[in-house]
Design a protein around this nucleic acid. Structure first.
Lengths: 239, 239
DNA sequence: ACCTGAACACCGTTCAAGT
DNA sequence: ACCTGAACACCGTTCAAGT
């Protein structure tokens, strides 16, 4: 039935509209400004209609989080076509993550919040499952690169470490650092190297520790970092 | 005036009571179950009285977060008396952090949440300042140990890295890993080494990267880790 | 000077009525 | 079958009245 197909399409379009409107409200006025009344008014739908799509307010937040993850995955996929040795390409992913959080700080706040139980316990199971699936896709891009490094002979993991250990390690430093970076000016008197290369510094030392060649003592990654950073920044700002 | 001193003391006792009751409610029923009515009933004070202490609900959450940080700092202070080379002692701090989050998962959720702007923008400036000060004290314990490692000749930082870079790096991996660990069973199909040594694994590789001696290739830290972990676990469960 | 809790305002959620 | 928005319930915040 074509009618059914159209209905389905219209339903999805409406969901997109709802999420986009919600995102705009949050970006402009913060999460606390997102109310069902406001969202209904902005989209010109009744409040009841919103509940056809989302089980509760937290479910909307998770919907936004899901969008963010998919966006991040798309960015990672583009970046994995980047030329260079595997370690440089991993740095690319780090930069991509960093630029993403800088451009969409409100979304990153949601990514952080969606890890806490307060939000998860209210959202619908389906949405949570979708988030986990999207999470998995992002992690796969990292995993993939680690395996490629092994195949290229640029990485030999220490005896007790698995691919997923390294994958989680990278994910953790990046996530942790970027999450804490929000609070950067709030923590007084930290004498840090300039903000940009901070993530590079941490990832570099971690990868040196895992002995992912060429080591940072063998190659100057800061030049690569700066070049890629500027390149990506232009690429992403054009979107 | 002694009356004033007594008043002050009673005021502080009441604040402690309010925070303890709030914590109990959150532990038992989750953050969303914490309402002003419930807190007033539990403490046998009127709702208006709560506002003598806290500017809003989020201010209470930040108050709990502050308590957590101070508790963590006390733990770190105890742990810094631990004997051994500086790298082992740093691992101790990591274990302390890990055990802390395991024992008080709800509090850790608040520590994560208090980094997001949604909460910060509502809490009182004074409370936020206190949190930053407490944060600083915790970081100082880490910094201190790094400096001691330098003095002991066990650590020579790479040319571009500062003490605070390493400090933040350690803080980031730990925070990131522990924050993500909550979602551990939710991310399907991750083939990871058993949960306990996961943090050790990441910290070890990071410290190897920073060339903090003795390197993990020179010493078997997993034995030290297990011993300290069990020791601390007993110590903390007795509290 | 401090505490109280009724009253208010706001907002998430539901569901009977309408199309 | 789907959409609507009035009505409801809940909860954070205030402040006039009481001690």
């Amino acid at each position: 039935m074509t009618t059914q197909a159209r209905r389905q399409r219209e339903y999805e379009q409406r969901e997109t509209l709802l999420l986009d409107s919600a995102r705009r409200i949050i970006r402009r006025e913060g999460v606390s400004a997102l109310t069902m009344d406001k969202l209904a008014a902005a989209t010109e739908y009744a409040k009841g209609t919103i509940y056809k799509h989302f089980s509760c307010k937290e479910d909307i937040l998770c919907g936004l989080c899901l969008d963010s993850l998919r966006h991040l995955h798309a960015t990672f996929q583009q970046l994995s076509q980047f030329a260079g040795n595997t370690r440089s390409r991993m740095i690319c992913l780090g930069i991509g993550y960093q630029l993403y959080t800088q451009r969409f700080p409100e979304e990153f706040d949601l990514l952080v919040a969606a890890r806490s139980n307060n939000i998860r316990e209210k959202a619908s199971p389906q949405r949570l499952q979708q988030i986990d699936a999207a999470d998995e896709l992002v992690l796969n891009r990292i995993r993939e690169l680690i395996v490629q490094a092994q195949e290229a002979g640029e990485l030999t993991l220490p005896p007790r470490a698995t691919v997923d250990d390294l994958c989680l390690g990278l994910w953790s430093v990046s996530f942790g650092l970027l999450a804490l970076e929000h609070a950067r000016d709030m923590i007084p008197g930290l004498d840090l190297t300039p903000p940009q290369p901070l993530l590079l510094q941490q990832i570099s030392c971690l990868l040196d520790g895992y002995r992912w060649h060429p080591l940072s003592t063998e190659t100057d990654y800061s030049a690569i970092y700066t070049a890629v950073y500027q390149h990506l920044q232009q690429l992403m700002s054009r979107e």
